[in-house]
Write a protein that binds this DNA or RNA. Structure first.
Length: 256
DNA sequence: ATGGTGGATTTTCCA
């Protein structure tokens, strides 16, 4: 199974780039974040015409997540399922084949110390608890998405500039460790121990042109998936060219 | 400390 995660920064604005990616990379499952639209205006027909099924959880203007699959998408759960009032569409989970997929768009947090920063840390705890409830022993589990957090300074083009800044602060990294603490591993690091690999480049500072990015989009996988991984790459071609998202997709190949 | 660009919906919010 080939599985991808991609923050598309509007599914409607990005539709041509998404269709090109699906055709070129030929994944089996794709987790999208920042779809930025209500389910009723999600471009379902265009994707179905290209052979895809979709499960969506959207809202107007902000956030929004979706799972695309070549095959059947079953047992769809929207949100963190913990009884907490949450108007932000940031999580969708489903069974696809023998893999349980959790697709998350983690709160950005704006800046260290801001209200949204504290909200982010609390939200990540809720995400960890949700994943702990969804995980079962020996199961193939993939938790992927835009985590808006770097694991360590290898994921940062300029660690001095970003030291203890948003996306790089110690509390955020500890919150991300809450997920690896459940026994999940960073799929990308199985194949790439060195730094300098990024998934997001800021539009505002022309980060792509400066080759100045961060690795904040991740695929965290349970031991049976980790053992079966044969590759994990960042699709830089999707970040290049006309009207790209500010994120590149992460693509993993799971044998069997 | 601030602004740069991009998307959605609007003259502003969020990233």
């Amino acid at each position: 199974m080939r599985i991808a995660t991609w923050n598309v920064n509007s599914v409607r604005a990005r539709l041509p780039r998404i269709l090109e990616f699906l055709e070129r990379v030929r994944p089996d499952v794709v987790c999208l974040q920042e779809t930025k639209c209500l389910d009723e205006v999600f471009p379902l027909e265009a994707l179905e015409e290209a052979g895809w099924s979709a499960a969506t959880s959207g809202q107007k203007t902000y956030n929004g997540v979706a799972i695309l699959a070549r095959g059947r998408i079953e047992d769809v759960v929207r949100g963190l399922d913990d009884g907490v009032e949450d108007p932000e569409a940031r999580v969708i989970s489903a069974q696809v084949g023998d893999v349980m997929v959790v697709n998350a768009y983690v709160v950005n947090g704006q800046q260290v110390g801001a209200d949204r920063y504290h909200y982010k840390l609390g939200w990540m705890l809720r995400l960890r608890d949700f994943v702990a409830r969804r995980a079962s022993q020996g199961e193939k589990l993939v938790v992927c998405g835009d985590f808006n957090v770097t694991f360590d300074d290898r994921d940062v083009h300029d660690p001095l500039l970003w030291h203890e800044k948003i996306l790089c602060s110690t509390p955020e990294r500890q919150a991300l460790s809450g997920l690896t603490g459940l026994g999940l591993k960073d799929a990308f690091r199985k194949f790439h121990e060195e730094g300098g690999h990024y998934t997001w480049w800021d539009f505002r500072t022309r980060g792509w042109q400066r080759k100045a990015g961060l690795r904040i989009d991740h695929m965290l996988v349970s031991p049976p998936v980790y053992e079966a991984l044969t590759s994990c790459t960042i699709d830089l071609a999707a970040r290049d060219g006309l009207q790209p998202s500010d994120h590149a997709p992460v693509v993993a190949e799971i044998q069997g």
